[in-house]
């Protein structure tokens, strides 16, 4: 069988063409390195580097033009047997009930976003009431939230925080808006996992959890907020967020997940209501499977 000596991919049963070895890459890198060394030592070394570089450029060029240099490498084919001594095992289910219930339906991402926006707006009501009652200004709560982002506001007075500041309002809007969206998305993702008591989950459990987490970490994130925050009103605000966000999320229709497609046809068609089919394994079959599993993959 003939092959083109200039075709690097040409192969037959005896010969494979591979790129020819060449020292020019090494010479060129040495030349460039010496030119650099010449800058900090002596110009003679730099000139030597330049000569080597030019020489290697020519040599390298001739290596690849008009045809890339290749060498034939002799091949003697001896097939390598690809096999394994391991056998396949089928793992028996740990129990007759599935350990993990993955929702077959969930909310769309936009649902979480809408919930986050609604919850975020609702949260401003108790926060605003607190601000008005205690400091006679709606802007106190806004500026307090924003103060974590401004180092110069660390020692700001209550009077300063009660005034309107455009950059404070913008910063608070960004912080509050972004956080509300993220928490809304979390609600959208998590509520289908706890379907039994949505009000308890969204309106009580989640606010308690967030309050505890923030209570332990707020000193690091925003020392000024940590000094002045009123935890009672903060908790009330979170409950407002949770109830409204959870309500808005639950208003939306769920969509089917990839898990749904994995269900048996009878379940998908609505002919059977058992959405989590249980794999029944009788005692003898389980014993066989366990035994097989031990043998497998040894």
């Amino acid at each position: 069988m003939q092959h083109d000596p200039h075709d690097p991919h040409a192969t037959d049963t005896n010969v494979i063409q591979l790129p020819a070895p060449t020292a020019y890459p090494m010479v060129m890198s040495l030349g460039i390195a010496l030119m650099c060394t010449g800058l900090v030592t002596n110009i003679v070394i730099g000139i030597l580097g330049l000569v080597l570089t030019l020489w290697s450029i020519v040599g390298w060029f001739l290596q690849v033009f008009p045809h890339e240099a290749h060498i034939p490498v002799a091949v003697e084919i001896e097939p390598i047997e690809i096999s394994t001594s391991r056998t396949l095992g089928r793992r028996a289910p740990a129990s007759e009930k599935p350990r993990l219930v993955i929702p077959v339906e969930t909310f769309q991402i936009t649902t979480g976003i809408k919930g986050g926006i609604a919850g975020g707006i609702a949260m401003t009501v108790p926060a605003g009431i607190f601000s008005l009652i205690k400091y006679h200004s709606f802007w106190y709560a806004t500026n307090l939230l924003a103060a974590g982002g401004f180092v110069s506001w660390a020692g700001a007075s209550d009077a300063f925080l009660s005034e309107f500041h455009l950059r404070g309002a913008l910063a608070a809007l960004i912080i509050h808006g972004l956080t509300s969206l993220l928490v809304g998305l979390l609600y959208g993702a998590m509520l289908p996992m706890f379907p039994r008591w949505p009000i308890l989950t969204a309106g009580v459990a989640a606010p308690i959890m967030f309050t505890v987490i923030l209570h332990s970490g707020i000193g690091v994130i925003s020392p000024i907020l940590n000094q002045r925050i009123d935890w009672f009103w903060f908790f009330i605000s979170l409950i407002a967020f949770g109830l409204v966000c959870g309500y808005v999320v639950n208003l939306h229709t769920k969509v089917r997940t990839a898990q749904f497609r994995a269900l048996p046809f009878a379940v998908r068609a609505g002919l059977h209501t058992d959405t989590f089919p249980v794999i029944h394994v009788d005692a003898q079959e389980k014993k066989d499977l366990d035994h097989k599993d031990k043998d497998a993959q040894q």
């Binding site: 890459p25 890198s29 390195a33």
Partner: peptide, 26 residues
Amino acid sequence: ARDMAFPRLNAFSFWISAFGGLLLYF
């Protein structure tokens, strides 16, 4: 694959890094 796409550039890349290390310690 049989080799890298640019075998000579591959050698060049190694050697220039190697000479860089030698230059540092020089």
